[in-house]
């Protein structure tokens, strides 16, 4: 995972020029997600509205890692498997960046790239319509996931989502959301 984090950062010149606010690598169990989310809400010095956006985006990205990382580990306190991955919160003078990295199967990574490609073409109205469509489909199909987490990330960030893939012995997906500070 360290190699992957470094590779992604080194390959992205824009990200090299940022300051790290939070970096975490490990299990994305719900108690840890909540712990990190409270630091975002309580410890960052941004305006409350911006902090809430960062918080909301983090929750959706972190849940993706927890549920969809190919590396899963049993967490005794909650008696469940949780995904392993990394989360990086960075800033420069203009933007906040939220990045997650986790391993995944190639077909799932392709699906994420395809979904993000569609999301990135849509304006706010289109994103809200797509979210409603996916939710209705999930309810009709009696599935638990509406698969709308990345749509919510795009709505909250007001920017396109960046996805990258790297592979060594495993395939890794990096997802980055970017928010304007002002």
């Amino acid at each position: 995972m360290s190699v992957q984090v470094n590779t992604f950062l080194e390959s992205n010149l824009e990200m090299q020029q940022k300051g790290t606010l939070i970096f975490y690598k490990g299990i994305f169990s719900y108690p840890i997600i909540v712990e990190l989310s409270q630091h975002i809400r309580n410890d960052l010095t941004f305006a409350p509205a911006l902090r809430e956006k960062i918080f909301s985006i983090f929750i959706e990205l972190a849940q993706n890692v927890s549920s969809y990382s190919a590396d899963q580990i049993y967490t005794a306190s909650i008696k469940k498997n949780s995904g392993i991955g990394s989360f990086h919160l960075l800033e420069n003078s203009q933007y906040i960046y939220l990045n997650t990295i986790n391993s995944s199967q190639a077909d799932k990574i392709n699906n994420i790239h395809k979904r993000v490609a569609i999301i990135n073409t849509l304006d706010r109205k289109g994103l809200r319509e797509l979210k409603m469509t996916f939710r209705e489909q999930a309810i009709d199909a009696h599935t638990n996931s509406g698969n709308v987490g990345l749509i919510e990330v795009a709505l909250k960030s007001g920017n396109i989502i960046h996805t990258h893939t790297a592979s060594t012995d495993k395939e890794y997906i990096s997802i980055t959301a970017k928010l304007l500070k002002q």
């Binding site: 809430e52 918080f55 909301s56 929750i59 959706e60 849940q63 939710r135 999930a138 309810i139 638990n144 996931s145 509406g146 709308v148 987490g149 919510e152």
Partner: peptide, 8 residues
């Protein structure tokens, strides 16, 4: 506040 799975 509620997350997307709660919204569903």
């Amino acid at each position: 506040y509620f997350n997307t799975s709660s919204a569903r």
